[in-house]
Simulated assay, not measured.
Amino acid sequence: MTLVERLRHALTAGSSVDAVLLTGDHVDHDLLPTVLTQAAVLVPVTDRAAPGVILTRRTDTMTRHAGQVAFPGGRIDPGDADPVAAALREAEEEIALPRAAVRIVGEADRYRTITGFEVTPVIGVVPPDLVLTPNPAEVAAVFEVPLDFLLDSGNHIETSVEWQGRNRHYYEILWGEHRIWGATAAMIVNLSRRLRWNG
């Protein structure tokens, strides 16, 4: 069974009925904006014996999410046919990932952010060791993290911070010098719970 087939099967048929998924940045949904901007991110999984996931670190000059680790992606533009098209376009713009190199597995669970976005993660499989070129206006670094590390619930650290007078709970995943947290970590946690990855 190919990696695409394994992921697609896990995403559609292997999901746990009892999986508790994270739906948004805050359990107090009254803090979420009432009108959400649709967005999509690409979750690029490398097709190798030990698959990895390609992530980016935003530049420190970004007006939103400066310096944070993220999947390539962004808002869905009027010219995008669907979340898949938006995710592929954004990945090409941000890290020069050719659209034709991505084999789409499917869409994962949407996630709402406190900044007003409803994000659709799009899982795709890409060849290993592609030469990726970060767009210097948006991306400071591109790196790969082993898929089994990301999906291991033992690496999902739940923490909290006080925000607007309330404790905001979120997950973080530490990989070397990189701190993956917020919406990106939450989407990884959801994938872990949904896929029940077994290597």
Results as ranks from 00 to 15, higher is better:
residue 102 V to S: 10
residue 103 R to L: 13
residue 103 R to S: 15
residue 104 I to Y: 00
residue 104 I to K: 05
residue 104 I to Q: 01
residue 104 I to F: 06
residue 105 V to E: 07
residue 105 V to F: 06
residue 107 E to K: 15
residue 107 E to D: 05
residue 107 E to M: 15
residue 108 A to K: 03
residue 108 A to G: 14
residue 108 A to Y: 07
residue 108 A to W: 03
residue 108 A to R: 02
residue 109 D to P: 00
residue 109 D to N: 10
residue 109 D to V: 15
residue 109 D to L: 10
residue 110 R to W: 03
residue 110 R to L: 08
residue 110 R to P: 07
residue 111 Y to D: 11
residue 111 Y to R: 01
residue 111 Y to N: 08
residue 112 R to K: 14
residue 112 R to L: 12
residue 113 T to Q: 04
residue 113 T to S: 13
residue 114 I to H: 10
residue 114 I to S: 05
residue 114 I to V: 15
residue 115 T to P: 00
residue 115 T to N: 13
residue 115 T to I: 13
residue 115 T to H: 13
residue 116 G to D: 11
residue 116 G to M: 11
residue 116 G to A: 10
residue 117 F to Q: 12
residue 117 F to A: 10
residue 117 F to I: 00
residue 118 E to H: 00
residue 118 E to G: 07
residue 119 V to H: 05
residue 119 V to R: 04
residue 119 V to Y: 01
residue 119 V to N: 09
residue 119 V to L: 01
residue 119 V to M: 02
residue 120 T to D: 04
residue 120 T to M: 11
residue 120 T to I: 02
residue 120 T to N: 02
residue 121 P to A: 11
residue 121 P to H: 09
residue 121 P to K: 08
residue 121 P to E: 06
residue 122 V to L: 06
residue 122 V to R: 06
residue 123 I to N: 00
residue 123 I to F: 10
residue 123 I to K: 04
residue 124 G to D: 09
residue 124 G to V: 10
residue 125 V to S: 03
residue 125 V to H: 01
residue 125 V to T: 05
residue 126 V to L: 11
residue 127 P to A: 01
residue 127 P to N: 04
residue 127 P to F: 06
residue 128 P to W: 14
residue 129 D to Q: 12
residue 130 L to A: 12
residue 130 L to K: 03
residue 131 V to R: 12
residue 132 L to T: 03
residue 132 L to C: 09
residue 134 P to Y: 08
residue 136 P to F: 11
residue 136 P to C: 09
residue 136 P to Q: 10
residue 136 P to M: 10
residue 137 A to D: 14
residue 137 A to T: 04
residue 138 E to R: 11
residue 138 E to W: 14
residue 139 V to I: 15
residue 140 A to F: 03
residue 140 A to P: 01
residue 140 A to E: 14
residue 141 A to S: 14
residue 141 A to C: 08
residue 141 A to Q: 12
residue 141 A to P: 00
residue 142 V to D: 06
residue 142 V to R: 06
residue 142 V to Y: 04
residue 142 V to K: 09
residue 143 F to S: 05
residue 143 F to K: 08
residue 143 F to P: 00
residue 144 E to K: 03
residue 144 E to L: 01
residue 144 E to D: 10
residue 144 E to M: 03
residue 144 E to R: 08
